[in-house]
């Protein structure tokens, strides 16, 4: 990893700026930071998880984008550091001060930090094994995926769900890590679009891989729709006041209701209906656009989880979001020394 310098510098600068913003008096505090972290961690961990899953089942399509997805690893560290900034803000969680054995600030911070760091370490181990192409990579992939599931479950149960304590939904964990994989696939969709935007090179293989990914995104849109429905219908049917409150708060006032429909459309209806057509599945630009729509949907959904509970200052959130986005793009654009060779495979 020789050319890490500039990228690290930019990432560090971005991270510092985000940190300053978060700590400054104009900072939106917990809300803004939480939305931004919840969103980007789904993309970063999900991207690597997609690569790991494909390694595990020997899926060939991943070869075209794998080095890029693996390049997301440094972001996991950045996000872990940014997560530390939540520490002073944890008093905004409703369970704060209740003296719970599970929900108290120290344990909250502790278990999440450990999970984040372990996931990062597992990602590092997996990436180095995967880029070298050793036999160890499947083992490393299993370990990474194991930690990925734990980490995303904690994001779901701790970061987001406990905002609504004592409301709970046992599917939140599964829902989040599937969504994170979905986001990882969407990132791969954008990467394919980037690779295939020029038609001059001989890219028959990449095109074939791309078609597999398009089908996979289509499948995931159905899976996502199914999971969403499975959670909704149980709460809707049970109709218990302590459970429906979560949904009622998010559907009974004007902007929230539109947001709810919007993310349903972005994450399910548009990808599903769009990718039904074989022509769309064959067009990198259209699949790229659908991938973007999926990511927008994900962002709206995360906003909708947090907005009714915590105040968000739009400017800070936007600045933090863009800076992390920048770090994300820098990570993706960054070619590590081994990455180039792997891309040829």
């Amino acid at each position: 990893m020789k050319q890490d310098g500039p990228a690290l510098l930019i990432a560090a600068g971005g991270g510092l700026a985000i940190a300053l913003l978060a700590l400054s008096p104009i900072g939106g505090g917990l809300g803004s930071m939480l939305v931004v972290l919840c969103f980007w961690i789904a993309l970063a961990q999900g991207g690597i998880a997609v690569a790991a899953t494909c390694d595990l089942v020997n899926a060939r399509w991943i070869a075209s984008v794998k080095p890029r997805l693996l390049a997301l690893t440094p972001l996991l560290l950045l996000l872990t550091i940014l997560f530390l900034l939540l520490w002073p803000e944890l008093q905004h969680y409703p369970w704060n001060g209740m003296g719970g054995r599970y929900l108290n600030t120290d344990f909250f911070m502790g278990r999440n930090l450990v999970a984040l760091l372990l996931t990062y370490a597992a990602a590092l181990a997996y990436v180095s094994a995967a880029l070298r192409g050793t036999a160890q990579r499947q083992k490393a992939a299993v370990i990474y995926l194991f930690l990925f599931v734990i980490c995303q479950s904690l994001v779901a149960f701790d970061w987001v769900m406990s905002l609504e304590y004592p409301w709970y939904s046992s599917m939140f964990g599964i829902y989040f890590f599937i969504e994170s994989l979905y986001a990882g696939l969407a990132v791969a969709g954008l990467l394919f679009w980037w690779r295939l935007r020029t038609a001059d090179r001989e890219q028959g293989q990449v095109r074939e891989h791309f078609r597999d990914l398009a089908t996979l995104i289509f499948g995931f849109s159905i899976l996502w729709g199914g999971l969403f429905f499975a959670q909704y219908v149980v709460i809707w049917y049970g109709n218990l006041p302590e459970e429906t409150g979560f949904i009622v708060r998010r559907t009974s006032s004007s902007t929230y209701l539109q947001m709810a429909w919007l993310f349903l459309g972005c994450n399910f209806l548009i990808p599903f209906l769009g990718l039904l057509s074989a022509r769309v599945k064959n067009s990198p630009a259209l699949v790229g656009a659908i991938s973007l729509v999926i990511l927008v949907g994900l962002l709206i959904e995360r906003l909708l989880y947090i907005l009714p509970v915590l105040a968000i200052s739009p400017l800070t959130a936007l600045a933090q979001f863009s800076l992390l986005g920048l770090a994300f793009v820098v990570a993706l654009r960054h070619r590590s020394a081994t990455g180039d060779r792997a891309e040829e495979l």
Partner: peptide, 15 residues
């Protein structure tokens, strides 16, 4: 899961 019995009524049931 769509009943309200403890142990049955929980969203994770489908997956």
């Amino acid at each position: 899961a769509v009943s309200i019995l403890p142990g049955w009524h929980t969203t994770i049931f489908a997956p």
